[in-house]
């Protein structure tokens, strides 16, 4: 059992090393990657692997670093602040399930494995219209950064299987997203597959919470930029941050951010403690983060005035990322519904 001080120290270390890659404030790299074919950069991906992040939650015995969910959340938050485009969360899902040489080549950065589980919008969990085994058949949608993957970890009827992205019978259709990345609609027509043991669900829980943490980072950074703007922009001979109408708005946003942080960190602690309530806590955190991130990034545009509606100025990048993440791994309404269901089970 680690002490609180140890935990704080390890979270600080992970945040610091994350800032080495995320460099909040420098969006040149992020802008250059927007709307490119893969949407991310392979060299940066290799750096991320060198840091051991895809294996953060993998047991040491299997080659991972076996850190806490609180550490994962701290990392995701910083990556959110920096708008990091590389597919850490999807790859971490795959790492959760894979073992042996498949896992080693994922953790080593040689193979990017992207999970493909969803079959329609606004759904949580694995779509079962796809069949997997030694062949895969069916169609998956909203597959994150599909065009940058070397392998798909396909979940469906029959469990899990690995399918090479360039295998015969695999077709990837790219759908660009507002943040400059893309989703793939991936069709498997009798594609050769290699069955994998295990289940995706626990990994999806962690990915959902990590996405909430990323949203927390996105909104915090957008808020910081907005506060800076309120402190410097002058109209009517005063800093606009001196207008009470805007001060109240900033105060409201800060409260949403505080609630999100509390909710996300509590959910992470609940997973770390192996609590039976952790799924409800994850839904609560994701519902809050999705809603708050949209509110904060939307208001951030408004408080910037005209310059907020330009692509040249960075504030819009945070809104666009929030638009994608808010609905990834379930939007606010979907998670409220799941929370209500879980709460009923608990109350019963």
């Amino acid at each position: 059992m680690t002490s609180d001080a140890d935990l704080d120290e390890s979270l600080r270390l992970i945040r610091d090393s994350a800032r080495g890659i995320a460099t909040p404030g420098d969006t040149r790299r992020i802008r250059a990657l927007r709307f490119s074919t893969t949407g991310f950069d392979r060299d940066t991906w290799c750096q991320i692997c060198a840091m051991g992040w895809p294996g953060l939650r993998v047991p040491e015995a299997a080659g991972g670093s076996e850190l806490s969910m609180r550490a994962y959340v701290a990392l995701a938050e910083v990556l959110g602040e920096g708008l990091v485009a590389e597919p850490l969360i999807p790859a971490a899902i795959a790492a959760h399930v894979l073992r042996g040489p498949g896992l080693a080549s994922l953790l080593g950065g040689e193979t990017i494995v992207i999970p493909a589980w969803q079959e329609s919008a606004n759904t949580l969990g694995v779509g079962l219209a796809t069949s997997v085994g030694t062949r895969a058949n069916g169609q998956k949608c909203f597959v994150p950064l599909a065009a940058g993957g070397d392998m798909f970890l396909v979940a469906g009827q029959g469990g899990l299987a690995l399918v090479a992205a360039d295998a015969p019978g695999v077709r990837i259709e790219r759908q660009p997203t507002q943040d400059g990345g893309h989703f793939g609609t991936v069709t498997f027509s009798d594609a050769p597959a290699e069955p994998v043991a295990g289940a995706l669900e626990p990994a999806l829980e962690e990915a959902t919470l990590a996405t909430a943490a990323m949203l927390l980072g996105v909104m915090e950074r957008a808020f910081t930029l907005t506060l800076d703007y309120l402190r410097t922009r002058e109209q009517f001979g005063r800093k606009i941050g001196s207008f009470q109408a805007l001060q109240h708005r900033a105060a409201d946003l800060s409260m949403q951010i505080a609630l999100t942080r509390a909710s996300v960190e509590a959910a992470a602690a609940s997973i770390d403690a192996g609590s039976p309530q952790s799924r409800a806590a994850v839904s609560r955190a994701k519902a809050r983060a999705s809603q708050a991130a949209m509110m904060v990034t939307r208001e951030a545009i408004q408080l910037h005035g005209g310059i907020g509606y330009t692509d040249e100025y960075d504030i819009g990048l945070y809104l666009r990322r929030a638009m994608v993440l808010a609905n990834s791994f379930g939007g606010a309404a979907t998670h409220r519904a799941r929370f209500a269901m879980l709460a009923v089970e608990e109350d019963a």
Binding site: A121, M323, A326, N327
Partner: peptide, 28 residues
């Protein structure tokens, strides 16, 4: 629109090529 569109809300292009179904763009 964003609340009901789910993952489609984050798309850059209209859904299914139908200009009338472009929740993300209209939101922006």
């Amino acid at each position: 629109m964003l609340d009901i569109a789910g993952e489609h809300a984050g798309l850059l292009e209209p859904m299914e090529g139908n200009r009338e179904l472009a929740p993300g763009a209209l939101f922006i």
